[in-house]
Amino acid sequence: MLKGLLDSIVLIFTGDSALTNIILVSLRVTGISLLISTLIGIPLGIFLGLKRFIGKRLVIALLYTGMGFPPVVVGLFVYLMLSRAGPLGQLGWSFIPHLYTTGAMVVAQIIISFPLVAGFTMSAVLSLDSQLRLQLHALGATPRQALWTMLVEARVGVLISIIAGFGSIISEVGAVMMVGGNIENATRTLTTAIVLETRKGDFSMAMALGIILLTISFIVNVAMLRLQGKALDQ
């Protein structure tokens, strides 16, 4: 194990091209998925936190179910939808990603992460005082200004929602394996590569990938904590 650890450090610092490619695919897929999940999840969470409408409980129940959705089930669902015989795959529209592409992986990861972003954002908004919006209006805020202020007030919770979304994506293996296919130099990510290298018995590479995955996760979370900044201290 110690040898594996030392070999992994050598691999990281020698700039192995296969390793670099895996890292770049992981970062690209995770980054795009998280961005789209955030763009969907935060407005949805705010809407659910602030608005009353018929069927809201059902929507929230579905959202909570989505927060605990097994990634392999999401992978299976996306696989069936995007396969050539599937309802979306057979349409042949150019904007619908094909199986075994990073596009398909992004779709699966969005489905996994956006309920987490929306759910935690909703909780953050609900934790604000119910009369705050009235107070902001009474101070002359436009609806947009009031909404922005409330989002800023709920910033710690909103950032936690993004961290949760990021965590669910970066560590995910089942869905990306199913819809991405773990193709070298194309859809191989850190997690799927770890599975592959472990099966091959190349523990040095598997450990190197594991260390890199943990390091990326750590750096992103530290960056998020810095963004939370003083609000967290208070």
Partner: peptide, 27 residues
């Protein structure tokens, strides 16, 4: 904006005293 209201609970924002007082002006 011809009126304003002070609620029973202060309902202050999580920022400095000065920023809270300036909030309506900044709007």
């Amino acid at each position: 904006r011809r009126l304003t209201m002070v609620f029973q609970r202060p309902l202050l924002l999580n920022r400095s005293v000065q920023a809270n007082i300036a909030y309506g002006l900044r709007l």
